[in-house]
Amino acid sequence: MTVHQDLRRQQDWEVPLPVQPGKGAEHRETSRRELLTYVWAGTLAVMTLGSGIAAYQFLYPYHRANTFGGKFYIGAATDLPLVGSEPQANVDGRFWLVNTETGPRAFSNICPRSLATGPVKFTWDADRNRFDCPVCGTKFSREGHYIEGPAPRSLDQFVIEVVTGHKVFAKTKRLPEEIIAPVVPSPEAKILVDTSKIIEGFARMDSPALRGSSLKVVPGELSA
């Protein structure tokens, strides 16, 4: 019923108007009509908000598979380098793929030291079985642990996802003491490197491979 129909009906029935037009409405309780209007307006507001969230997700840039910033499909677990074999360089993904005793790891190929001045890439020294930075000379072990040199921390790692079926079975995790490589449950499990997620290496003081054990601090001791 429109306002005017309502009024006319009241006039027809000779019902006195509840209040004088234009006076004092703000001091009275919310009427049903007003409440309903707020419900409509609220529904519209919720819809608009929902559209806004959807638009945000729609607009958010995505990275295609196998380009840096997106996920790299390495293949089945059998396609990983053998444990103990040389790390594999992935130039597009900007990482070194290593299969360590503790599981597969993808090290960002940028030396943690040179991040401040520019992206310098470290290399694999097959003779000494370690990573060397050609600029600052920092050395890292196969597991990515800091050995010596000016870099502030161990190597950064990208998150590796192990997918069985359509589910992520395990992925690289950062715990307070160490970075855990994902468990590979079966040879068919698919391996993905997510280059949008990077885990920073631990400070060099915490490195288990640190030279000169006097400097070495056992992780957890400080907090304890």
């Binding site: 306002v3 005017h4 309502d6 009024l7 209040v19 037009p21 234009g22 409405a25 703000e26 009275r28 919310t30 009427s31 009509r33 007003e34 209007t37 707020y38």
Partner: peptide, 15 residues
């Protein structure tokens, strides 16, 4: 204004 707005929503006639 706010008062008129609420009077409008409450179904009151305009002045």
């Amino acid at each position: 204004d706010v008062g008129e707005f609420r009077r409008m929503l409450q179904g009151e006639p305009p002045g």
